[in-house]
């Protein structure tokens, strides 16, 4: 198959725009980035099948029909994105209602482990009595 230039460019831009938003901390922006990325991925899948008449039997000759398989997959993806959007929006609102902003904070537990690593200490979960001996 010969690739379609318009698709290739649109996919690239949607990915770039989506990634730049996803890498931020505001949950609403992350969500918007996910939606853009999702659209980009959908187009990427669509590009994999040939374009043509709608895949409805009897509308035209079968040979000119667009490939239905990517469409089937994308349809599922679109609806799942809707569910995810609703959930993340509720999460963003909740975060705002609880803490006054919708930013994704750093994980406290991870920071505790980083601190241990800086101090060259173990987690104390290895169940030997080294730690008690050291104290």
């Amino acid at each position: 198959m010969t690739p379609n230039l318009v698709y290739v460019v649109v996919i690239g831009v949607l990915f770039a725009a989506g990634v730049s938003m996803v890498l931020e901390r505001s949950l609403t922006r992350v969500l918007m980035g996910m939606i853009l990325l999702g659209n980009g991925v959908n187009l990427l899948i669509l590009l994999g099948g040939k374009a043509g008449t709608p895949p409805i039997v009897g509308l035209g000759p079968d040979e000119e029909m667009a490939d239905p398989l990517p469409q089937i997959m994308i349809l599922t993806a679109i609806v799942i994105t809707l569910g995810m959007t609703a959930f993340l929006l509720a999460l963003a609102y909740r975060s705002w209602a609880m803490s006054g902003h919708d930013e994704v904070q750093d994980d406290v537990e991870d920071q505790r482990i980083m601190l241990l690593a800086e101090r060259d200490e173990g987690s104390g979960t290895d169940d030997t009595d080294h730690h008690e001996a050291a104290r």
């Binding site: 290739v8 949607l14 490939d67």
Partner: peptide
């Protein structure tokens, strides 16, 4: 911005190459 641009570029490149490389008849 750099990472975003690079990802976009790679995605576009993958789309281009993957579609161009498709030779099998679709199952559909």
């Amino acid at each position: 911005a750099t990472l975003a641009a690079a990802t976009g570029l790679v995605a576009a490149g993958m789309a281009y190459v993957a579609v161009g490389g498709r030779i099998a008849t679709p199952i559909s």
